[in-house]
Write a protein that binds this DNA or RNA. Sequence first.
DNA 1: CGGGTCGTTGACCGTGATCAAGTAACGTGG
DNA 2: CCACGTTACTTGATCACGGTCAACGACCCG
Lengths: 239, 239
Amino acid sequence: MQRLSHYVALSDASKRCLIALEKDERSYPRNTEVYAAGEPNKNLFVVKSGWLYSYTNHIDGRRQIVKLHHPGDVIGFSDLAFTETTTFLWAADAACLCPFPKDGLEAVFSTSAQLSALLFTLAARDQVLLIDVIRAIGRMQARDRLAYLLLDIAHKLRITNTSMTSTFRLPLTQTEIGDAIGLTNVYVSRSFFNLEKAGYIRRSGGEVNILDEAAMIDLCDFSDRYGAVDTSWFPLPAN
Amino acid sequence: MQRLSHYVALSDASKRCLIALEKDERSYPRNTEVYAAGEPNKNLFVVKSGWLYSYTNHIDGRRQIVKLHHPGDVIGFSDLAFTETTTFLWAADAACLCPFPKDGLEAVFSTSAQLSALLFTLAARDQVLLIDVIRAIGRMQARDRLAYLLLDIAHKLRITNTSMTSTFRLPLTQTEIGDAIGLTNVYVSRSFFNLEKAGYIRRSGGEVNILDEAAMIDLCDFSDRYGAVDTSWFPLPAN
DNA sequence: CGGGTCGTTGACCGTGATCAAGTAACGTGG
DNA sequence: CCACGTTACTTGATCACGGTCAACGACCCG
């Protein structure tokens, strides 16, 4: 809810809707599966804390990580259209989630046009983020893909943590990073070394420090999608 | 509208909303740009006829095609969150589009919770389709990526054209196909040859015939996303 | 101390990119 | 009707990026 009111002034009705959705909560230890692909999906989840990711499996055992989830994210929009989940959800770090039933959204659409529009907009932005990933994986060399991923994470973390400078903890193994950007763990290691050697980043103890953000933005032609969203067309909060 | 009522019985209010959106129309010849990335985006478009695609440019001149658009598709959801377009839109074939202003959606959200939910669901499905592309580009070898693309197109065309068997016209150059699945035109040519040699497809005069769909589905672990969508949680059409 | 996971590094290999040449189809204008 | 230019597709030769396999060290935890 904090995260949502960041974008637009919510009406009281909208706020009541949201509070109803966040009442429950559940904890998951590090390295546990929240759900598997193909399960009936009745819930969406709001991330209260922790890092998680959604992934799919490939026939030969390889994985593709599709989305990283951080505090404030809503997980499960993309599976709304289906009765079964299409991806696996994994807690990369100890996490706390607020599950709420899919038909809780029914109440949102019926009572708050404003909130509906906002959720729709966030789903739209998710699409753009996925498109950015496609661009990175489809047309960038290894080092630039890694630069892209690091910038994306940094910018995303800055939404909720405005005090964050350019250093952040990265609780993912290099295998996981590779699964996110279509590389092997070995080449992730080499790409890290490349970025470090060039003076773009520094690593120490599970933390990454982005030293030359401007140069890295050039490498991968990065655009920040996490800033303001266009709310000009939204219905009036009156209703 | 035809396409939408395919999924759920629309209320009269919903239908009136839709008709208002489709009143205008505009034609584009083959190989023309509808809009460029970075333009102010005021409109969404419904495709009445033709093939189009959205793409992004990369620094070194390479392109990444991100979505193919066919009759019945709504173009522009993904850019709702932004005041400027994030991709280019190109008519790969003579096309006819119905533009409608972004704030036309405001009316939808205010008057029809049902229609809002449906549009939301379709946007959600689009996300899953993008995830499928990420999986293909990130973790499949060339031949399987092409198999994936062909299957995706075939299944999509079958939504609106139920009589379609397994043969369809493919009005894209091999360079464009490569831009869609992260390959060069040369390797697209070779991958086509592979699929043909293996007896999976046959080509003639701009048409593709899928001979062994089951085998191709195995190659790329394909799932059809275009069938039914889950409408069970939708608000009642009463309002 | 032993076992496990994770990251790093080296050697080698293969997929797909790159470069280039050749062919076919098509539209244009003389 | 042919000459011409353009675009698309194919095919061959070569190359390089990143995959694969393997070994080793660091670290953590029991």
